[in-house]
């Protein structure tokens, strides 16, 4: 701005800003199923995206313009984004008591961390693109595209469908009251009325891990709660306050411990394909994303073959 400095080259800043903003908006699309209250949620996320992209893109320009005060203030503004996680978590935790099949603490934390990280990623994409664009505009645009694609690949975690096989299974009652999905014992239903509802309207699926990561994911109770939540969101659940035993349940094949799980639901929309698709699209939780487990019970059979 002052007369002694050379005129500011705006191109890197614009390229960086657009890249950062685009990267954030692209991730919003994939995260939409988790977000409550679409219009208002979008507005606040878009506003944050603009701020994040602006901060990321203007740091290099202000440093080159020898505006160190401005650069310092920008890093200060960046720390404000730590609050995003807290805000997100609080919103979802408040909502938890208002929905019939909750997300579970693990899922909430995962969503909150992801939202925070994506804001920082938008900032980094903006920063990196503007750095390259400072050298050459065309190279900056190409680099921005590469950064956006790499960021998208890096940030979008695996889905349950990649780790676990989801297959429909029949619901039945053994010994009069024990609800089974295929081989998996789910729970004990004491009321004849509820048993009748499960028989006539219930749907069941069996989840079988495909690989060691699926095995680890399924043993995580938060992961199963997340699966139950996504299933209930997709096909609805005929449940209300006062009908706790008719909710969605996702339980391991427990006394046997084979590593597979069952899920029961009394859906509003009786569509098994939609239910399976929803389960397959459930994100693998951050906490269990990289852990692996091999069930020795299943491995014994493999060793003979």
């Amino acid at each position: 701005m002052s007369g002694s400095t050379p005129p500011i080259n705006w191109d890197p800043m614009i390229i960086g800003f657009v890249a950062g903003f685009l990267s954030r908006i692209l991730y919003l699309r994939s995260g939409k199923s988790h977000y409550p209250g679409y219009p208002s949620g979008y507005i606040s996320q878009v506003a944050l995206a603009i701020i994040a992209a602006l901060i990321g893109s203007s740091i290099i320009v202000s440093l080159l313009g020898k505006e160190f005060t401005a650069a310092t203030f920008l890093t200060l503004a960046a720390t404000q984004f730590r609050d995003v996680r807290t805000t997100e978590r609080q919103t979802l935790e408040k909502e938890e008591s208002l929905i019939l099949v909750g997300r579970g603490a693990g899922y909430i934390e995962g969503i909150a961390i992801t939202y925070e990280a994506r804001n920082f990623l938008a900032m980094l994409v903006a920063l990196a693109s503007s750095l390259v664009a400072e050298w050459n505009d065309i190279a900056g645009i190409i680099a921005a595209l590469v950064f956006i694609i790499v960021g998208e690949k890096f940030m979008s975690g695996p889905r349950i469908g990649q780790l676990i096989d989801v297959k429909p299974a029949d619901l039945r009652f053994e010994k009069g009251t024990l609800l089974y999905v295929g081989p998996v014992m789910m729970m004990e239903v004491g009321l004849p009325d509820s048993r009748e509802r499960y028989r006539s309207q219930g749907l069941g699926v069996i989840l079988t891990p495909k690989n060691p990561r699926g095995e680890a994911a399924l043993w995580n109770i938060s992961q199963r709660q997340a699966i139950a939540h996504e299933a209930a969101v997709a096909v609805g659940v005929q449940k209300d306050v006062g009908y706790p035993e008719q909710g969605t349940l996702c339980r391991m094949d427990m006394p046997k411990g084979t590593g597979s799980a069952g899920l029961t639901i009394i859906p509003v929309e009786r569509d098994i394909d939609k239910l399976i698709r929803a389960i397959e699209q459930t994100p693998v939780l951050e906490s269990g994303k990289w852990s692996r487990m091999v069930n020795t019970k299943n491995r014994k059979e493999d060793a003979h073959g």
Binding site: T177, E188, V189, G190, L191, S194, G242, P244, E245
Partner: peptide, 8 residues
């Protein structure tokens, strides 16, 4: 809002 369990 309770859940019933039959003890047989």
């Amino acid at each position: 809002n309770a859940i019933a369990h039959d003890l047989h």
